[in-house]
């Protein structure tokens, strides 16, 4: 079994896959600002007695996850997502990934990524845009997709930006648009934002794989298909693709390595302490983070000059 851990800004996903890349166990948890706890909880849920042969971590918190698990490989989320998508849809040309705080597009050819883009600054093309509006409307985000599908004439919601979208949405409500039309409009707006901000000018060719947390939302999927004029394929494990990719990468590196460095599932019960402080030794004022367990420092990061790095 291979273990994959994807630590994003919003969620932590863990999977255990077998030789045939079938998902054996998995967990999807919200980080809620406590990534260490979430990682431990995720591992607890995918814990199993079968031996783990390798561990891969990915996502913006990949370094943290790598320290906790003592991973065999640490990879960026673009490579991980691309590899997983190309496994499930071997001739995939475009991967559209919309997550909670970030989104990306990956262009592939013959199963190999050839171009990519990701957003990090603007929230308008990400899941948090929807979460925010759902909260405003007082409708649980899970119902969003269903409601959007009922709309016959989606409201046109202007919005290159969440702030403008919000005021326009209020305006449309006051004009008497039905809630489903407004929600469908929001979905369209998110898709347009994504296409303008992230996919900007990239050639979107079929087959298209749509993954990430937001892909579960049927309203968005429909809006995306309409906007592109093409069918998109949402894989069964759309939320877990990053973690699956990481596990696949672990499987790949373990070919030339004999034994995994995995710390074992016991880490679920270990205590990890993080300590952060600001180094004042030069005007860079780096924020240094130290992770330790049982009084032993496992890793430090954040220093620009390398002064606080542990020697390996």
């Amino acid at each position: 079994m291979w273990l994959g851990v994807d630590v994003g800004s919003v969620s932590v996903d863990t999977v255990l896959i077998n030789d045939k890349i079938e998902v054996f166990k998995s967990a999807y948890l919200l980080t809620a600002g406590m990534p260490i706890e979430a990682i431990k909880e995720g591992l607890r849920k995918s814990r199993d007695s079968v031996p783990v042969l390798g561990v891969g971590t990915t996502g913006s918190g990949r370094e943290l996850a790598a320290v906790l698990t003592n991973a065999d490989i640490v990879k960026n989320e673009i490579t991980a997502h691309a590899i997983a998508a190309a496994h499930f849809v071997p001739d995939v040309r475009t991967v559209i990934e919309i997550g909670g705080q970030d989104s990306k597009i990956i262009i592939l050819k013959d199963g190999i990524p050839v171009d990519f883009a990701m957003n990090t600054v603007c929230a308008a093309g990400t899941g948090s845009f929807l979460d925010h509006q759902a909260q405003r409307l007082g409708i649980p985000i899970e119902k969003f997709g269903q409601l959007a599908l009922q709309s016959k004439s989606p409201a046109r919601i202007a919005g290159r930006c969440t702030v403008f979208a919000e005021s326009d949405m209020i305006h449309k409500q006051q004009l008497g648009y039905g809630i489903e039309d407004i929600i469908a409009g929001l979905c369209k707006s998110l898709v347009r934002n994504y296409l303008v901000n992230v996919a900007k000018g990239k050639p979107i060719l079929p087959p298209i794989v749509f993954q990430g947390g937001v892909a579960s939302n049927e309203g968005i999927r429909k809006a995306l298909e309409e906007e592109l004029g093409m069918k998109v394929f949402v894989p069964t494990y759309n939320k877990l693709m990053g973690a699956i990719g990481a596990a696949m990468l672990a499987k790949k590196v373990m070919k030339d390595k004999r034994k995994t460095s995995f710390r074992g599932f016991d880490i679920c019960d270990m205590e990890f302490n993080t300590q952060s402080f600001i180094c004042e030794d030069c005007p860079n004022t780096c924020e240094i983070v130290k992770i330790s367990s049982n009084g032993k420092v496992l890793a430090t990061w954040g220093s620009r000059c390398g002064k606080w790095d542990l020697s390996k």
């Binding site: 990879k75 960026n76 673009i78 490579t79 990524p113 990519f116």
Partner: peptide, 12 residues
């Protein structure tokens, strides 16, 4: 974000 892009680009 910069690190992720650089890493992904080199992988590619």
């Amino acid at each position: 974000g910069v690190n992720t892009r650089l890493e992904a680009f080199c992988d590619l």
